Computed example of a mutant assay.
Amino acid sequence: MGSFDIFSPDGRREIAYHRTMPAGVEGNKPGVVFLGGFRSDMGGTKAVFLEAWAKRTGRAFLRFDYTGHGDSSGAFETLGIGEWAQDAVDAVSALTEGPQILVGSSMGGWISLLLAKRMPERVAGLVGIAAAPDFTEDSMWAGFDDRQREQLIHDGRVELPSEYDDGPYVITRHLIEDGRENLVLRDPLSLGFPVRLLHGTADVDVQMSVPLRILEHADCADLRLTFVKDADHRFSSPDCLDLIVETVESL
């Protein structure tokens, strides 16, 4: 594992990463970048599985932790979509060469679309796995009751239960307000490269209407959506993992 420092007006950020650079990779481009989900880290099943595939096939591969996640610096509760998208821009700029295939899981699908808007010349293709663009607005804020909204506005935070961790997780006012500054499904979204969306019908975190909305909204000449019956939000069963690799290989 490596790390690199970014110095910005907000201070120093340390980004932890794993990078695979096989010999002769110049002849086996583009590389692949995995972008993880909300509160996840680069040690997840999908990221590690893709890395193993990349090593077997001589493909450059990058996985990293956003600030406030995993082994990177920063306090999660002080950060939001804008900071994590900037982490992704910095990681791709510093650690990869040429166009990359972005594989974005859940929130990583949103980050991938932000990267596509900010640095389209560095994107060769995009695979969204249970992609969740604009979730802070369309899922979190829209799902809050009046009490939770008032608490968020006045206290700056609200706690929500999580089925993935032992305790509740905190949603901050900054996360919601920063999310509004980075929405991708309200304005034109032009994607000049192939896009593949993978989604499970048993996903209770991101409804099937979300990838359908992306399909309808995006201006993309080569965009395909695949639903997998009974797959959940993790999308990490052996069949799902194989489908992810097949999809990346097809690009």
Rank of each mutant, 00 (worst) to 15 (best):
R186S: 09
D222L: 03
Q86F: 09
P238Q: 04
A91K: 06
A132H: 03
M119N: 06
H233I: 06
A16S: 15
T201P: 07
F34Q: 08
G74R: 07
E121C: 00
P9Q: 03
E216V: 03
F7E: 14
I129V: 15
V33L: 05
P168F: 04
L175Q: 14
H18D: 15
E14W: 03
V89C: 14
L50I: 00
T78R: 12
A60T: 15
S93E: 15
P22D: 04
F144H: 00
G68Y: 11
P99R: 03
A16C: 09
H199R: 02
L160V: 13
W141N: 01
M140H: 05
V204N: 13
L212F: 04
W141D: 07
G58D: 05
G36E: 05
A218I: 00
M1T: 10
W53A: 08
F135Q: 10
L241M: 11
F144G: 02
S73A: 10
I176Y: 06
Y66T: 06
T96Q: 13
P211F: 05
R234H: 04
I111R: 00
S3D: 14
E137R: 13
A116W: 03
A116C: 14
E137C: 08
G44Q: 15
M107L: 14
S105H: 12
I129F: 08
E216L: 06
S3P: 05
Q207M: 09
V123L: 01
I176V: 12
K29M: 11
W110I: 02
V158C: 10
L102N: 07
E137K: 13
P194E: 02
I15K: 11
K29D: 07
S8Y: 07
V195M: 02
E216A: 15
G80L: 10
Q148H: 02
G80D: 11
A94W: 07
G98L: 04
F49E: 09
F76A: 06
R12K: 14
S72W: 13
G98I: 01
S106T: 03
